[in-house]
């Protein structure tokens, strides 16, 4: 399962494709502040990224993949700087 959802946390693993969008949306809908853990995510589909942008989410951890982390962090930082649990290091 690329997307594991517990009560307050959605954990992304491996390749997270567009198929997960519906379950992610369901998860985000129900919650005021939803936590998202991307650390094991290696591929994040635009549909999921888009939900993270629109929804009010707290990113607990960025992906370990540096490229993915840099740009996911960049995109989310601009939209919701206040929702990031920790400052995102923009790697150079």
């Amino acid at each position: 399962m690329p997307l594991t959802i517990t009560r307050t946390l959605a954990r992304f693993e491996d390749c997270c494709m567009v198929e997960e969008a519906l379950s992610l949306l369901e998860f985000l809908k129900g919650r005021k502040s939803a936590k998202v853990d991307l650390s094991r995510c290696t591929y994040l589909h635009s549909a999921l990224l888009q939900l993270l942008v629109v929804g009010s989410v707290k990113i607990v951890a960025l992906p370990t993949d540096p490229l993915l982390a840099r740009w996911v962090g960049r995109v989310l930082a601009e939209r919701h700087p206040e929702h990031l649990a920790q400052p995102v290091q923009i790697a150079r």
């Binding site: 969008a21 985000l28 809908k29 888009q50 629109v54 995109v75 601009e78």
Partner: peptide
Amino acid sequence: SVVRRDEIALAETDPF
């Protein structure tokens, strides 16, 4: 960076 093309609330979003 990204910009949203509309301001539809999450509840009404079509995820696809």
